[in-house]
Write a protein that binds this DNA or RNA. Structure first.
Lengths: 111, 111
DNA sequence: CAGGTATATACACAGTTAAGTATATACAGG
DNA sequence: CCTGTATATACTTAACTGTGTATATACCTG
């Protein structure tokens, strides 16, 4: 599943991203902070890397991972149409759209 | 998988939410607009309903679904720490945190 | 070079789940 | 009532995906 949404559906991956949100980390640091087996960390990081959520820098035997924002940006963008449901500015337009924008599918009108 | 993230990992469910973002719809309307088998629509709607993404109003034999924002709000909130990566205001603080906030490498066990 | 550290990968397995098909329930209208 | 419409649910199946275990690769230090 290559969708950004599918990637962040996994709790451990979100935990890793949360950790990287504040600063870059090596695999070992993630492993210890999250108390998660090393192969698991590496595998999740691979998924995140291939999906563009993180990128790695090689530093001797270490790989230091950091956030790469593109896919998260995409998720953020997807949320846009829904923000009106909680973004305070509850004006008439919203209710209006909600009631009117129905497409009567080729039959008589109802209600 | 009860997490809001798991729920929206499914493309058809996102499509349904997108449709409902602009206005409420009956099951049949969704079925036709998305050209998706009715049992599939009903099943996805159940998942969405149980997870709090939508709520339904009964209207004769129809069930009219509409967005219920809470879980999406939660997703939106989760994104907050990452917004600094693309929210324009790229100031020194960010890079600073990114470099400095590393665990003091060794010198005794942590905690 | 040996030995240790850091990370990646291969493989088998188990749990989850979306899709398809069939059927059940509820209501409306003649 | 009977029929058609609208929606939900049961069950099976195939595909995926995360985990654990074991191993491979790379690099550093003495």
């Amino acid at each position: 599943m290559e969708s950004a949404f599918g990637i962040i559906a996994e709790p451990n991956r979100r935990a890793i991203l949360n950790l990287l949100a504040s600063s870059e980390r090596s695999v070992g640091e993630i492993e210890r902070k999250l108390r998660m087996p090393q192969p698991s960390v590496s595998k999740h990081l691979r998924v995140l890397r291939q999906a563009g959520f993180v990128e790695a820098r090689v530093e001797a035997q270490r790989r230091v991972y950091r956030i790469s924002p593109e896919p998260l940006k995409e998720v953020d963008a997807w949320l846009a149409p829904f923000r009106r449901y909680w973004s305070g500015h509850v004006d008439a337009l919203e209710r209006h759209l909600d009631r009117m924008e129905r497409v009567p599918p080729r039959k008589g009108k109802k209600r």
